[in-house]
Amino acid sequence: MARFSNGPDHIRRRALALSLLDSVGDLREAAFARTREIVAGFETFDVMAEIARPVPVGTLASALGLPDVSADVALVAAAYHPHVVPGAAAEAALGRLITACGAADELAAARIGLLVQACDATAGLIGNELFAWLSGKAVGQPVLATRRRIGGEDVTVPLAGTPFGAGPRACPGSRHANALATGVLAALRGFRLTAGETTWVSSPNLRMPAVLRVTRG
């Protein structure tokens, strides 16, 4: 992946990810439509489980020419954090993602990387914004730190005040993440928080709801 590369490898792999993102266009309307279709069958539900993760990933996967791989992406994303040791389920999910991409090459890595990195970050963007909107309590940015590889070692980089990073390694999908979040949030108008049922992710690098239940009306 580009983020764990340096020099020419980083430049080439980042350019590949950027070219993929340039091809998908505006994701807002697709995310809006996908969310509206899902919530039509619910009166009360957990936004994080039903919408915040599967909708952005599914929408982006479709735009990248892939089937809905959101369940496998969620398994890989959960094992992607520096404090987690990947298990057999995540390894199997990664294998299925490679198969869905058709090959184990840099193009597949770029597509999978975009989906995995979008999963929790965009879910957090949606969850934090919705919680703030419905409760009146600000939460802040969902991703507190990221990782880079320097001299063969993974290092943690704080993101205080720069939710999408900055410079040559800034998040390439910030515009797309905001479009996905905007579409989802627009489709969730008319819902309210279900009292006492919001819990928060226990993670050193994430600040976002683990469960965010809402009710129609």
Rank of each mutant, 00 (worst) to 15 (best):
C171E: 08
A123Q: 11
R3Y: 13
A31V: 05
R192W: 00
T44C: 12
V155H: 11
V184W: 03
D154G: 04
Y80V: 00
R3A: 13
V57P: 09
R28L: 03
V214M: 03
S174M: 14
R192C: 08
R111M: 14
E43N: 08
R148L: 14
A40I: 00
P172I: 09
Q117W: 02
R175A: 15
A187Y: 02
T44K: 12
I51V: 15
A181N: 09
M208R: 14
M208W: 00
I98S: 06
P56F: 01
R189P: 02
A145R: 09
S23C: 01
R207A: 14
R96D: 10
A40K: 09
G102P: 00
A123Y: 13
I126L: 04
E37D: 14
A71V: 12
T156N: 06
A186H: 10
M208H: 01
A160W: 13
E153K: 13
C171H: 10
G127T: 08
G161Y: 11
A49S: 06
D120I: 06
L185T: 05
T194C: 05
V85H: 06
R14A: 07
L125C: 11
E106K: 06
I38Q: 03
E153C: 09
T59I: 02
Q141S: 15
T156I: 15
A177E: 13
D105T: 07
